[in-house]
Each structure stands twice: as structure tokens, then as C-alpha cells.
């Protein structure tokens, strides 16, 4: 299960690169993804759909050991996200930031809207 860490400006400006390096050094499979847009939670680290907010390199071992000290629950259900009606960045794309490898199962999950076709 990859550890998802944004590489947009707000994440990098708050130290996400160091956090990503620390996860990689600890042997985790790190995927740099786009941001959910919740600047105040960055660096936001997503493990198995669960967000961990304002993570520093010092928290990495804890998170990998299953600590929920910084956990904010499922990111897709965060009120800031759940209350939005996304028209262009449709829920069917959450939280995909690059196309899945050919033949890979669709990583669609979270708040996917029923009946919506994912375009890719």
C-alpha cells in the first residue's frame, strides 16, 4: 500500500519532501500525488485512505507502526472535501493523480459517485 504524499507547493513548502524521504528511508512505498487542497493539514500523509496531518519526519516511525496520533480519518470524508461538489476534478478521479499502470485494477475508492464514468 503506497504512502501518498502530495508534492504540490503547499506540501513542499511545509516540509513534505523531508517527510517523503523519511518514509522512503523507512522502506515505505511512497507515491507523490496531487494535493487535496487542504493547505492547513500539509504535509498530509495518506496511508490506506486514512490521513495523517502536519506530519514531520519524526512522526514517520509512529505512523508506520500504526499510530493514529495525527490521524484525521478517511481523507475523502473530511468535511472540507465531503461538502464540495466537484465538477471538474470529479470524485471518480479521487485521489488519482496519474494514470494507473496498464492492466492495474482501478484504484477508484472513497467518495466515488455512482454511475459516473471515469474518463481515462
Amino acid at each position: 500500500m503506497p504512502v501518498r504524499i502530495s508534492d504540490d507547493a503547499s506540501a513542499r513548502a511545509t516540509g513534505a519532501d523531508d517527510v517523503a524521504a523519511a518514509f522512503a528511508a523507512a522502506g515505505a512505498d511512497v507515491a507523490r500525488v496531487s494535493s487535496w487542497g487542504m493547505q492547513w493539514l500539509e504535509p498530509l500523509v495518506e496511508v490506506d485512505g486514512i490521513g495523517h496531518a502536519n506530519v514531520t519526519p519524526a512522526d514517520v516511525a509512529d505512523i508506520l507502526a500504526g499510530s493514529t496520533r495525527l490521524a484525521i480519518g478517511p481523507v475523502a470524508e473530511h468535511p472540507f472535501i465531503a461538502r464540495q461538489q466537484r465538477l471538474t476534478f470529479a470524485p471518480s478521479r479521487w485521489p488519482i493523480s496519474r494514470p494507473p499502470a496498464a492492466g492495474a485494477a482501478s484504484p477508484r475508492r472513497g467518495g466515488s459517485a455512482p454511475g459516473r464514468r471515469s474518463r481515462r
Binding site: 503547499s10 513548502a13 492547513w40 500539509e42
Partner: peptide
Amino acid sequence: CLGLCGIGPA
């Protein structure tokens, strides 16, 4: 403005 308004000073 550097686009980091919510987490300034930037």
C-alpha cells in the same frame, strides 16, 4: 502572494 495564503507567512 505565493499561493500559500492559508499557511503563511511564506
